[in-house]
Nucleic acid binder design. Structure first.
Lengths: 234, 234
DNA sequence: ACCTGAACACCGTTCAAGT
DNA sequence: ACCTGAACACCGTTCAAGT
């Protein structure tokens, strides 16, 4: 083992034995790495070190980083479903539970979760999550056309919100710190003449990291769904 | 001029004259570059070429890529405000117009827009957008506490949704193509036994790129706001 | 068949040197 | 004062070579 290329294999914990490298092992290691080092820490070199294998050995299981990313998102969806019980039949409660489970999974792996709303994994766990959402909406009383449309909006809003939360959590600590301080500092000392409305309420704006925001957004969404059901024509 | 480092200065259009490099010029060039090459195309080298200057000359105006990014987001917010008339006093129409203007700006510069929901620029244009949203909510009849909370949700939902749309538009063309085809292909040929609800509605799910989705999401949100106003307790 | 080593064409960033 | 050149420590990815 050469030491000229410092760091690549130098800090290897244990050397992996031939044939033990599988997609599952790689996905698991990648989630662990991303949890520690954020997205910019999730590199093939770091992953190789984590695995006790050469960085390029990963290419035997994933064509490129994009394919690995999709597998990681699928793994997150799998986690979401694991932490979630079977549907209870209460469409509203089930929708809420699903949305919260999705967000929790994204936040558990923010470096991956921040991209999960934009990509489609085209995998079974993703299908299953969609299946569940559509199931809730149909049980609520929406006809197929309406259920399909509402599914799209619900998924985009929920995953989008969760992805923003994940993106925030995935920021490098110093940058995140700076952003948070801006909200707490600069936003509360603005020119009342120039920003009268903002100045009036600034102190009462919940932190962008307040977990209650997501719940309130869900409340609003479900209120709106109920309203459409009451109006009939669904 | 050496040619050993291929490409860096080789394709320079015109050489910039000393002293003409300002933050404004750099921001404008960066938005142009990002429009063409997506996020992975937005590099200091590409920006240097666009500017007719050495890549590292940019560091005289921005400490690092993070600072440049914040300036770019501010520039996008400035564009949003430019395309937007003065508030009309109709809180609902104004909110809608604002949300659409934000999304349009994000989509005009997707490589930057996809990050805009997560970061805070702490700049005057960002303040102005917040000011306007809060203004709409107060005019609608929300008291300060409620207006502050609803602002947070509205901003997160709207910017989050727009950022997802931008992220989609910013995907490298081949990857984006693959994702879209998955929605149109695989999602419509699923096992009806395993995914009964999804299979029933799959054909009717709007495309993830359908611009009507955002409008519908806004409709739902504003319905929910009205409901809370009607319920009293402002 | 499975993995490594070496190389390639890039990145962002620092800093001494030029004008 | 403003900008460039060269260097540093990284990236993802390809491919010939080893076992």
């Amino acid at each position: 083992m050469k030491l000229s290329r410092v760091g690549v294999m130098a800090t290897t914990r244990k050397r992996r034995q031939r044939g033990s490298l599988t997609s599952e092992v790689i996905v698991k290691a990648a989630l662990a790495v991303s949890e520690r080092g954020g997205y910019e820490g999730l590199t093939f070199q770091a992953l190789g070190t984590e695995l006790g294998a050469h960085p390029t050995a990963i290419y035997r299981h994933f064509r490129d980083k994009n394919e690995l990313m999709l597998a990681l998102i699928e793994a997150i969806h799998a986690e979401t479903l694991e932490t979630l019980g079977a549907p209870t039949g209460d469409w509203e409660g089930d929708l809420r539970a699903l949305a919260h489970a999705v967000r929790d999974s994204f936040l558990r792996h923010p470096a991956v979760g921040q991209f999960a709303a934009v990509r489609t994994t085209r995998g079974p766990h993703e299908f299953e999550i969609v299946e569940r959402i559509v199931g809730c909406l149909r049980r609520a009383g929406f006809d197929d056309r309406r259920a399909a449309r509402m599914y799209r909006i619900f998924a985009d809003v929920t995953l989008g919100y969760a992805a923003v939360d994940a993106g925030l959590a995935a920021l490098p600590p110093d940058i995140r710190q700076g952003d948070l301080e801006a909200w707490e500092g600069r936003y509360r000392s603005l020119d009342r003449g120039r920003y009268p409305n903002l100045a009036a309420v600034a102190e009462q704006i919940p932190s962008i990291e307040d977990p209650g925001n997501f719940s309130t957004a869900l409340d609003l969404f479900i209120d709106a769904l109920r309203l459409r059901l009451d109006r009939g024509a669904s």
